[in-house]
């Protein structure tokens, strides 16, 4: 378990609204029993026809840690394979205009913070990165800011998720298991526990 206060690395702008998890990782790559190797298949069907011109293939964005997306990113299927593929490609933080909820929850659960900015901020950040792909981008969870060269923008993040990263408690499994005695007690309120 590790705290995440800020992430610094180069950026990768991926433009488009409503990018769904089928596009992030097509269903055929879900035929697996581990998440190993998913990174190379991220956006497989979007990348193939572009012959190396997709942002995830462009040399300028190689090694990027900060993914910058637009509206309703990660909608659709609950497949954790989607954030796993993005993270295994090398992304450590995502900034977008908005995220679908299950995708957001999956990112938190695997330790990838997702922060939101308004349309103008996100578009300006994408342009700043595209203009200078080697510039370091810093996403600061404490200050809720993003800095890329001269560009500085304000971000927001759900407070619970933010605290989870700042305190290093984003993996809630241990807390949930520690609460088992309280769980047992709480089931007394639920009549269906004793039916058949």
């Amino acid at each position: 378990m590790s705290q995440v206060n800020a992430v610094t690395g180069t950026g990768l702008p991926l433009r488009g609204d409503d990018i769904d998890t089928d596009r992030i990782i097509p269903a055929r790559f879900l035929r697996c029993v581990t998440f190993d190797g998913l990174g190379e298949h991220v956006f497989a069907d979007d990348r193939a026809p572009l012959g190396g011109e997709h942002p995830f293939d462009q040399a300028a964005y190689g090694g990027a840690k900060v993914l910058v997306v637009n509206r309703n990113f990660g909608c659709g299927s609950s497949r954790e394979h989607a954030p796993q593929a993005i993270a295994r490609w090398g992304i450590e933080v995502i900034v977008g205009e908005s995220f679908a909820e299950i995708f957001f929850a999956n990112c938190i659960a695997i330790g990838v913070p997702c922060l939101t900015g308004d349309h103008e901020t996100v578009v300006a950040l994408q342009e700043a990165i595209a203009a200078n792909p080697t510039a370091a981008v810093t996403v600061d969870l404490e200050q809720l800011t993003v800095q890329c060269g001269d560009f500085r923008g304000q971000l927001t993040m759900k407070e619970g998720a933010r605290q989870a990263f700042l305190t290093g408690q984003w993996d809630s499994c241990g807390q949930l298991v520690a609460g088992l005695p309280a769980v047992q007690a709480a089931t007394a309120r639920l009549p269906y526990m004793s039916w058949a």
Binding site: H81, I102, A105, N106, I110, C173, L176
Partner: peptide
Amino acid sequence: FGIGTSQVRDVLASQTLAIA
């Protein structure tokens, strides 16, 4: 609720979810 795999782990291990 639809959930991801880490949350499936959580439910198996605790019969609970962390959710807002």
